[in-house]
C-alpha cells in the first residue's frame, strides 16, 4: 500500500504539541478559495506542461507518467506555478516502511507525527497502518483534517490516534459551500463527536476580512467548543496572502485589533485556550 506524499517537514513547531514530524498528503476533497498550498489539491494528471518550464531538466515523461528527479531539482517551484491542475509533479508515492525510515532518522528529536494535507483522511486505511508502526516508536499520532470525512466511521484509526486538529472554516453552511465547495454538516458533526470522546486537540478558523462573516463564525464556533470542553484550544489564524491563488492575493490580512476583538468573543463564550497566529 502506498499513498501520495506532497511534502515532509521533519521538524515542525506548529502542527501540535512539541516537535513534530509533519507529513502532507496529496489530494483534497475541498477546494478552498483561500487555500495556502493549492498545489496539494489534485493528483497529477500527467499532462506534462510542467516539463516545459523546468530549468534543470528534472522532469520527464516516461510511460505516460511525469517523473521527478529529485537530485536535479533546485526547488524553484516553477513547475507548481505552471500547473493548470492544482497539482505538483514532485509528489512521491510512499509506503509505510519508506515513511518510517524517514521518521526513524529524527525519532530522538520528536514528540510525534502529524499527518496533514491536502486532506489526509482520504487515506484513512493507510494512516491506520502507519500509526500502528509509529506507536511502536513511542511517538504520538495527530491528524490535521478539514473534517469532511466522518471520523465516527474510522474508530480503528481513532483508537491509534492521540488527537485531531480540526479546521472549522465557517459556521454557516452556505458560506462554507461558497468557500470550500462542500457543506459543513460533517465538519460540525466531527467537532461534536471528537470533542465528546476527548480526541480534539485544537480547532482552527482562518479569519478573512470582507470575504467571511468572521464575527458570526468565531462567536458560534467558540460557543460550540466551550459547550463540549472549554480547554480545547481554539486557534484563530490570520489570513495571509502567501501561496494563495492569484484571485485571492489581493485580499488583506486582518488587523491585530480585529483579531484581538475576535479572541475576546471566544473567551467571553467560555473558551479558556484561545490563541492567535
Amino acid at each position: 500500500m502506498k499513498a501520495p506524499v506532497n511534502k515532509i517537514i521533519p521538524f515542525s513547531s506548529v502542527d501540535g504539541p512539541g516537535n513534530r514530524f509533519s507529513l502532507f498528503f496529496q489530494g483534497c476533497n475541498f477546494n478552498c478559495l483561500y487555500c495556502h498550498n493549492p498545489e496539494t489539491i489534485n493528483l497529477c494528471n500527467n499532462c506534462g506542461i510542467c516539463l516545459e518550464v523546468c530549468p534543470k531538466g528534472a522532469l520527464n515523461i516516461i510511460d505516460g507518467k511525469v517523473l521527478w528527479k529529485e537530485a536535479l531539482c533546485v526547488k524553484c517551484d516553477l513547475c507548481i506555478k505552471e500547473c493548470p491542475n492544482l497539482s505538483s509533479p514532485k509528489v512521491k508515492y510512499m509506503s509505510v516502511k519508506e515513511i518510517l525510515n524517514e521518521v526513524y532518522k529524527y525519532k530522538l528529536f520528536l514528540s510525534g507525527v502529524t499527518v496533514s494535507g491536502g486532506e489526509c483522511m482520504l487515506y484513512a486505511e493507510f494512516l491506520k497502518e502507519l500509526f500502528k508502526e509509529i506507536k511502536n516508536l513511542n511517538l504520538t499520532c495527530f491528524i490535521d483534517s478539514n473534517g469532511y470525512i466522518l471520523f465516527e466511521e474510522f474508530n480503528d484509526l481513532l483508537n491509534l490516534t492521540d488527537a485531531v486538529m480540526l479546521d472549522v472554516k465557517s459556521y454557516d453552511e452556505k458560506e462554507h459551500i461558497m468557500l470550500t465547495g462542500k457543506s459543513n454538516k460533517n465538519v460540525l458533526r466531527n467537532l461534536i463527536y471528537l470533542g465528546s470522546i476527548g480526541k480534539l486537540y485544537e480547532v482552527r478558523t482562518v479569519v478573512v476580512p470582507d470575504v467571511l462573516d468572521n464575527v458570526n463564525n468565531i462567536y458560534s464556533i467558540s460557543k460550540m467548543i466551550a459547550n463540549i470542553d472549554d480547554k480545547i484550544r481554539y486557534k484563530l489564524i490570520k489570513f495571509r496572502p502567501l501561496g494563495v491563488r492569484k484571485e485571492f492575493s489581493r485580499i488583506k490580512s486582518p488587523t491585530d485589533d480585529f483579531m484581538t476583538k475576535l479572541k475576546e468573543i471566544a473567551v467571553n463564550n467560555g473558551c479558556k485556550n484561545v490563541i492567535i497566529t
Binding site: F11, S13, V14, G18, N19, L108, F109, T277
Partner: peptide, 20 residues
C-alpha cells in the same frame, strides 16, 4: 519568536540533540 507558543518544541530538540 513564534517558538514561544510551543516551548516543548525546543525542549524536544534539546532532548534529541543530547541523545544524539
Amino acid at each position: 519568536v513564534t517558538a514561544k507558543n510551543n516551548p516543548e518544541f525546543i525542549l524536544d530538540i534539546i532532548k534529541g540533540s543530547f541523545a544524539s
